[in-house]
Design a protein around this nucleic acid. Structure first.
Lengths: 112, 112
DNA sequence: TCGATGTATTGATAATGATCGATACATCGA
DNA sequence: TCGATGTATCGATCATTATCAATACATCGA
């Protein structure tokens, strides 16, 4: 059996660098155990909202660390923070989570 | 208006550390522009399969770098590699992608 | 067996990121 | 206005990671 060539490269519909970078940015914001737990805490909280001060103890992390993670989630558009008095109440942006799930729904080519 | 307390912390059903670490590991494997493009290339390739040598040129990366990314995808269970002669043909593990998408489907609490 | 080709590993380097103490900023109650 | 409390930023440190040259390993064709 002669094997001169590998296989025929057909890369139609492949993510370009910009699309891939954008999606990777969203995924990176979620690809951390602490931030996943924050997201699940916000999803489980009454009204889908919690203030940062509530997160430190269950996460077992210092306040600047929690603030750091909330900032990353905020800059990725996964959460929004609304100040109410001394506290900032964070809530999920479900549309952004849906966007991530949609980005992972690959369009496979038709079987030949 | 008196504001002595923040809000009532109710964190039932929150991801524990092990679950969060596992999901974060899967997400980290995808949270890279190069690896997202590799995944989309495999999804678009004939038969859902491509060999590593095909990826270097369109990605514009050196061979060890592509091999590095394929290894990360492989160790995360997102792709499998099958050697055929000199070449290793990689294909997607769609079940693993579904697992990620399912992990991002949050179970929101019932409205009160 | 030998040279060619595809793949994996090693080692080094530069960049990114997680963490926290210290500190500054914002808002409330008194 | 002042002290208390929640939040954000700064600076430093340590760990992780993306990249590639060099090299080793695997397989094919001759």
């Amino acid at each position: 059996m002669v094997m001169m060539d590998c296989c025929t490269p057909v890369f139609a519909g492949v993510l370009d660098v910009d699309e891939a970078t954008h999606t990777a940015g969203l995924l990176s914001a979620l690809a951390d155990p602490v931030r996943l737990r924050i997201v699940s805490m916000l999803a489980a909280a009454q009204g889908g909202t919690a203030c940062g001060c509530e997160l430190e103890a269950p996460l077992g992390l210092a306040q600047p660390t929690v603030s750091h993670h909330l900032r990353i989630l905020r800059e990725a558009g996964l959460v929004v923070g609304e100040r109410r008095g001394r506290w900032v109440h964070y809530s999920l942006v479900l549309e952004r989570l849906d966007e991530i799930r949609d980005a992972l729904r690959l369009r496979l080519p038709e079987p030949v």
